[in-house]
Write a protein that binds this DNA or RNA. Sequence first.
DNA 1: ACTATATACTTTGTATTACAAAGTATATGA
DNA 2: TCATATACTTTGTAATACAAAGTATATAGT
Lengths: 115, 115
Amino acid sequence: MSYDYANNYEKQMKKGVLEMLVLKLLCSGPKYGYQIIREMKEKSGEIFLLRDGTLYPILYRLEDDGLVASEWSGGEGKQVPRKYYRITEKGAAALEDIRAVWQRISGGVDQILEG
Amino acid sequence: MSYDYANNYEKQMKKGVLEMLVLKLLCSGPKYGYQIIREMKEKSGEIFLLRDGTLYPILYRLEDDGLVASEWSGGEGKQVPRKYYRITEKGAAALEDIRAVWQRISGGVDQILEG
DNA sequence: ACTATATACTTTGTATTACAAAGTATATGA
DNA sequence: TCATATACTTTGTAATACAAAGTATATAGT
């Protein structure tokens, strides 16, 4: 049986873009982890199916860099405590930079693939 | 001074795509290392500026996987010996698979970025 | 009440890969 | 002769997607 190249290439091609996509989703308001996973799945047309072990480290990195900020909510009544993440001003500015990088790279790729 | 996010994201976003682009360039005929670096630079519009320490490990991986084959040439007269790489049938088939992955991922990214 | 399941978050370890950097060797031009 | 460009090799580092295992709470089913 042949090795599944596609699977590994898909994993590699996601590198860098997932943080960008998380920042983008947070532009429409604060969200908690599992909510981000659901929206990522829906809005990408089932293409980005994040595991929790993938998302949370991304959120921690973004928070360490000051691109998002978090706040615990719930736990008072009977709700499960949830950690809500919101994008910061610094994060919004970084998102614009990262989008520009994506446009550049994906444009260059298509130029070679179609050339 | 602020950290240069763009630089790191660019590096991450290249992961996986460089092998695809090398395979694509080899579709138009066998090429040696530095020739691939030059064509990658020209045909991408100066976007993909590979260092030799980046390209050669890619070629070795592709060869290990049987997606390209190599052959030394020159060295008989006064030419510098060059190792020419050509894409194999297996490599051509893999390229189609990898391109499909790229279309899928980049399409999903744009769907979220524009949504 | 008890159990199973879903939700929610955390942490550890692995594999992969772009890149810097240093090294070897040959050809060409000043 | 010496500097530079070409050509290939190898080592080490940083970054990140993912699997996997763990903790805790709420809800539904029996």
